[in-house]
Write a protein that binds this DNA or RNA. Structure first.
Lengths: 346, 346
DNA sequence: CTGAAAGCGCTAACAT
DNA sequence: ATGTTAGCGCTTTCAG
């Protein structure tokens, strides 16, 4: 950027003895320009090493061709899957992506929102951090007419467009499956219940127990931070309780892996003594022993859908106002860790 | 961006009855502007909801404040760690990051390079894809004076600045460790030997064998694509060979996990029958059983160093020409999967 | 189908 | 310490 002169449309125009307007039009493939002049222009542009100046263009058009991606953290399989999906779609559509992650901090999330706002993204795809309870920092986008799509961790009870899975159903199915396997005291290890995803899964868990006439024991519900340590600690806590538990629905595969490992180290057999269901279907799920029953959470798909929906809205192909909630399929994948009854490999 | 008028420095200037130049200077915190006027300007800017127009600025200054990040793929732990490190540093320094991944394809890599070049990134951080054998697509950056730093998969034999670990040493240490544990026939599962990382690890492997007076059997060296399937297939291939093997140095933890799982399914004990060393120290390494001995490959650190070095160069604090190779520490982490002799948990 | 010219918002000489 | 002004490269009316 510093050395050497950049070729501009003026250089091309004067070389070809035509006007910059024509060059500008030709470069955008405007049908109003004749094939002949277009050809000349393209060839010379290529030859001279011309590259469009996106700043000049954005300055003029007031469009940035940039999409902001706000995520609670960047170091999980799920987060990366979503990013992968988003990146795929935005790249294909010719948009740049600015990534900002909050490390689960509300303050950082606010700062990121401000930054992306100042960078004038054309649209925003966001997942909330753990402790976000206020949503004023998204208002500036709405005020300016910048579309926002939430995914996974979404702001509930508002007219936002959100892309989610049916977390209630997933929680219900996971718990029901454990009950079907003969579990009567099912623990639930989850995270901040202010976030829709965990709240909904918890609700599914509770309803499944109730629907099967099982008592619920709040001592079996542990809220932690989805770290590996959380899995280890939770296992220890549950093992210390007098009343035994025979199943666990854990809202994250990594936590589940650490949990199972800890159980095994303490002589508890999985699934014989305790059946376990995880969440996400991370790659780790089928590599540990026993392989982990889990809920498939298709991050790539979620990212693709969020990005595609946003871009369609930006381009005016569709309208976000018309749709509020996009629900992506998620399924229970049964592997060894939960099969008390019919044992089998997957 | 579309609705509502944006506030510009002209609005602030006319409101305050001063010149735009002063406003511009004040906003950049230029010491030449008096404290008093600065204060007035900041307050009004805040009140009016002013936000700098980065396009106008970039158009003027010819600086984009953007850094390009080219990576071979985005779906590995290592890749994400590097991204995390890069993102941290660039964000702190006020740079935007444009991410482009090649999915291990040379053609895509070329296209990405072109795109980032056209977007006029101020600098580039890149890791090469599998089959990249030609490097012309990086020439355009050098010609324009845009600094490029390679990491991990680097272009060798050139005067590029590269950030790497000592792959030779890592390969040597891993192999030596297996030999120390009593292994005599050590397999090596690796990937495309055109890439420096795998070539160097292989060289370390060979030298360690030689230095210990062990024969090398090329049938024990398998080149594959780092997929999970590669781990499974490799295990089957090795098991089919008449001559037994008693150790394996595998250039990727995920492959190693699948490899070990396959061995176990075939009644082979790890580490008793076959000792295994992986590479990367992914989270999975200590969650599988037996826990996996591996080489710690600090991706976050690598990303941070690459980004910091690049930015220092851009800002003129230091000069890339002066340094060619930055080597990051990596160590062997001994866990259960390799300990034939003294068993112990980690 | 092509051209002339204004202007997007900012910065940096060059004045004062 | 502050002001004037040209110009970064592009798009887009408006005219022809």
């Amino acid at each position: 950027m510093k050395k050497g002169k950049e070729v501009t449309i003026y250089d091309i125009a004067s070389e070809l003895k035509i006007s910059v307007a024509t060059v500008s039009r030709a470069l955008k493939d405007d049908p109003v320009v004749s094939k002949k002049t277009k050809k000349k222009i393209f060839e010379l542009a290529e030859k001279m090493g011309y590259r469009t100046n996106h700043f000049a263009r954005s300055l003029r058009t007031q469009e940035t061709n940039t999409i902001g991606f706000m995520i609670h953290e960047l170091n999980s399989n799920f987060a990366n899957s979503v990013l992968l999906g988003v990146e795929k779609v935005t790249t294909e559509a010719g948009y740049d992506l600015i990534i900002a992650h909050s490390s689960e901090s509300y303050d950082k999330e606010v700062a990121n929102a401000r930054n992306l706002f100042n960078k004038r993204v054309d649209g925003l795809i966001a997942s909330l951090s753990f402790d976000t309870k206020q949503y004023d920092h998204f208002k500036q986008f709405k005020d300016k007419g910048v579309p926002v799509i939430f995914f996974d961790r979404v702001e509930k009870g508002n007219d936002n467009t959100v892309v989610v899975i049916d977390n209630y159903k997933a929680g219900y199915d996971a718990t029901q499956h454990l009950i079907d396997q003969g579990c009567r005291r099912v623990a639930h290890i989850t995270s901040n219940l202010n976030r829709n995803v965990y709240a909904e899964r918890y609700r599914g868990y509770k309803d499944a127990l109730a629907d099967n006439g099982l008592d619920r024991d709040e001592n079996l519900v542990l809220v932690d931070n989805l770290s590996e340590k959380a899995g280890i600690d939770s296992a220890h806590k549950l093992l210390k309780q007098k009343r035994k538990f025979d199943g666990a629905f854990i809202t994250n595969d990594f936590v589940a892996a650490a949990f199972i490992k800890t159980l095994k180290e303490n002589g508890i057999k999985v699934p014989e003594d305790v059946a376990v269901v995880g969440f996400n279907n991370d790659a780790i799920a089928h590599l540990i022993e026993p392989s982990l029953t889990t809920i498939n959470y298709p991050g790539i798909e979620m990212g693709e859908i969020a990005a595609r929906t946003l871009i369609n809205h930006i381009k005016g192909v569709s309208n976000l106002q018309q749709l509020n909630t996009l629900i992506i399929n998620s399924d229970l994948i049964v592997r060894e860790s939960s099969q008390k009854k019919k044992k089998g490999k997957v």
